[in-house]
């Protein structure tokens, strides 16, 4: 570019060079974004899906379902919890180390963020439970409705 500095480009050409340069970078960014999104977006699974087609263990995913009654166990260290998430068709054991959300109880819905291990357990880094009636994780709005429908069907 040293020569360009000595013999300035024509006005039109400079505008064009700038425009093309900017476009190349921006389109590059868009393509990169599209490629990365395909690889990095974390998909939402329900237990029957994650059992049927488990994602590879390196991939971050979310698992949503109901915490099975009687499955919640706290390990001896006092901070690791193990429980089973089910959707009526399949059951997935989940282990989580941390402080559980206050509304996380057996029989309620949960969305776990984490990875599916090769041995079939789901290791969660984060649990999203209902905060209160007004603020519900997006996936869980549908889930509780489906769940409610199921309950209605079962009690009939």
């Amino acid at each position: 570019m040293a020569t360009a500095a000595r013999t300035p480009l024509k006005a039109k050409h400079q505008r064009l060079v700038l425009l093309i340069g900017a476009l190349v970078v921006l389109i590059g960014a868009a393509l990169l974004a599209a490629w990365a999104l395909r690889n990095q977006a974390s998909y939402f699974y329900v237990p029957s899906e994650i059992v049927a087609t488990p994602p590879e263990p390196t991939r971050a995913v979310r698992l949503g379902g109901m915490v099975e009654n009687g499955s919640l166990r706290t390990a001896a260290d006092g901070v690791t919890v193990n429980f089973v998430v089910g959707d009526g068709k399949a059951r997935v054991p989940v282990t989580f180390k941390g402080i559980v959300p206050s509304l996380f109880v057996e029989g309620s819905g949960v969305v776990a963020e984490g990875r599916m291990q090769a041995d079939g357990t789901f290791v969660a880094d984060n649990l999203l439970a209902k905060h209160d009636e007004n603020y519900v994780p997006r996936e869980m709005q549908n889930m509780t409705r489906e769940q409610a429908e199921k309950v209605i069907k079962e009690t009939k």
Binding site: V25, A29, L32, A33, A36, L37, Q40, A41, S42, Y43, F44, A60, R62, E139
Partner: peptide
């Protein structure tokens, strides 16, 4: 029809690149 969420594994390296 797919439920996904996009988090730090996408945003961090991609924005750092620029």
């Amino acid at each position: 029809g797919a439920k996904v969420s996009v988090g730090p594994p996408y945003f961090n390296p991609m924005s750092a690149l620029f």
